[in-house]
Computed example of a mutant assay.
Amino acid sequence: MPEQRVQRDELGAFLRSRRERITPDEVGLPPTGRRRTPGLRREELALLAGMSATWYTYLEQGRDIRASDQVLDALASVLRLDPHERGHLFRLAGRTPAPEAEGPEPLAAEMAAVPLLIQSHPAYIIGGNYDVLSHNQAAHELFPNLTTTPDRPPNFVRWVFLEPAARDFLVDWEPEARALLARLRTLAGRHPGDPRYTRLIDELHTGSPEMRAWWPRYDVQARHGGRKRLRCPGRGVVEYAYTAFHVAEQPEQTLVIYSDARESGG
């Protein structure tokens, strides 16, 4: 089966799965009795998105038709897609998602409170572009100058590459920085044109010769847990184990928790 047909079939399956999870009452439609299938009917979705039911049916059936950005935006709105789902929809339709809106990445209040609940361990939550969205006092004390940026959100990548103290604090600075940059590239690739990423990347290019040397290598890497050797005042070099937990509703947001490897049995 040609690749384009496979992609059209995947687009149809994705639309169908998202249509079936939206109930009529969620979009203000009156109840119509018992339904054979869950979610919205095709004609209901088409009406809400401002298109013909026949045209939408062709799209869901994987027919060889092209959807405009306006049509995809309308479908994304009615289907209540989050930014990651919206991007996936555009890519399946062979379109490039428009840049996402500027501004701080939203973090649910119940998630923002989690680092505070584990105050004995340094913990923070980072967004997709490594902005530190929430942190506890232990993290503030462990990482010198990471969270002292009153004019903008603290950012872990910016701290590693542009904060002079980070180079001494991170014992293995170069491999840590290379791996971090590979993870940033992976995430930035999912958000082409997003100013939150382009602005950070431009800032790193301006301020870091290592960034200018390493970025063209196109290294990529997924986020994961691991170990870091940190040079702590009064304690010398301490090896920390850290664990990364992805937030269910926002998979690019990550809760990171540190513990002394000696105390955790490492």
Results as ranks from 00 to 15, higher is better:
residue 34 R to D: 06
residue 39 G to P: 08
residue 122 P to I: 08
residue 216 P to D: 10
residue 197 Y to V: 14
residue 169 F to L: 09
residue 248 A to F: 06
residue 38 P to R: 11
residue 79 L to I: 09
residue 201 I to G: 01
residue 50 G to P: 04
residue 43 E to H: 12
residue 81 L to R: 12
residue 226 G to D: 06
residue 228 K to W: 05
residue 260 D to M: 02
residue 89 L to I: 12
residue 248 A to Y: 02
residue 101 A to T: 08
residue 12 G to E: 02
residue 205 H to P: 09
residue 226 G to Q: 11
residue 157 V to E: 05
residue 123 A to I: 01
residue 183 R to E: 14
residue 149 T to Y: 03
residue 150 P to L: 13
residue 39 G to F: 12
residue 14 F to Q: 11
residue 73 D to I: 05
residue 203 E to K: 04
residue 266 G to L: 14
residue 11 L to Q: 00
residue 248 A to M: 01
residue 116 L to M: 08
residue 71 V to S: 04
residue 68 S to V: 14
residue 130 Y to W: 15
residue 207 G to Y: 08
residue 52 S to M: 07
residue 173 W to K: 09
residue 111 M to Y: 06
residue 28 G to W: 00
residue 67 A to E: 01
residue 108 A to Y: 01
residue 229 R to V: 05
residue 102 E to N: 09
residue 247 V to W: 05
residue 49 A to V: 14
residue 259 S to Y: 07
residue 157 V to L: 15
residue 231 R to Q: 13
residue 87 G to C: 08
residue 58 Y to K: 03
residue 35 R to P: 09
residue 259 S to H: 07
residue 73 D to Y: 09
residue 67 A to L: 01
residue 251 P to Q: 14
residue 122 P to Q: 13
residue 113 A to M: 12
residue 93 A to N: 11
residue 140 H to P: 00
residue 147 T to M: 07
residue 83 P to Q: 12
residue 54 T to I: 11
residue 9 D to I: 02
residue 124 Y to P: 02
residue 144 P to L: 07
residue 193 G to D: 12
residue 103 G to T: 07
residue 179 A to E: 09
residue 154 P to H: 05
residue 98 A to N: 13
residue 122 P to Y: 04
residue 157 V to G: 01
residue 99 P to F: 03
residue 177 A to K: 07
residue 209 P to W: 06
residue 227 R to V: 10
residue 200 L to K: 02
residue 4 Q to W: 01
residue 73 D to E: 15
residue 266 G to S: 14
residue 67 A to C: 12
residue 216 P to T: 10
residue 53 A to W: 10
residue 180 L to W: 02
residue 154 P to Q: 12
residue 237 V to W: 14
residue 4 Q to L: 05
residue 82 D to W: 11
residue 56 Y to Q: 04
residue 207 G to E: 09
residue 250 Q to N: 01
residue 139 A to D: 03
residue 153 P to N: 11
residue 18 R to P: 00
residue 178 R to T: 02
residue 157 V to M: 15
residue 9 D to T: 04
residue 220 V to C: 01
residue 200 L to P: 03
residue 243 T to F: 03
residue 54 T to P: 06
residue 147 T to H: 04
residue 145 N to G: 10
residue 13 A to H: 15
residue 22 I to V: 13
residue 244 A to V: 15
residue 160 V to D: 00
residue 69 D to K: 06
residue 251 P to H: 14
residue 258 Y to R: 04
residue 221 Q to N: 05
residue 206 T to A: 15
residue 225 G to F: 14
residue 258 Y to Q: 08
residue 204 L to H: 11
residue 127 G to W: 13
residue 61 Q to H: 11
residue 108 A to G: 13
residue 224 H to T: 10
residue 255 L to T: 03
residue 71 V to P: 02
residue 8 R to V: 02
residue 239 E to K: 11
residue 58 Y to A: 04
residue 132 V to L: 11
residue 132 V to K: 00
residue 91 R to I: 10
residue 244 A to Y: 06
residue 8 R to N: 07
residue 247 V to D: 09
residue 128 G to A: 13
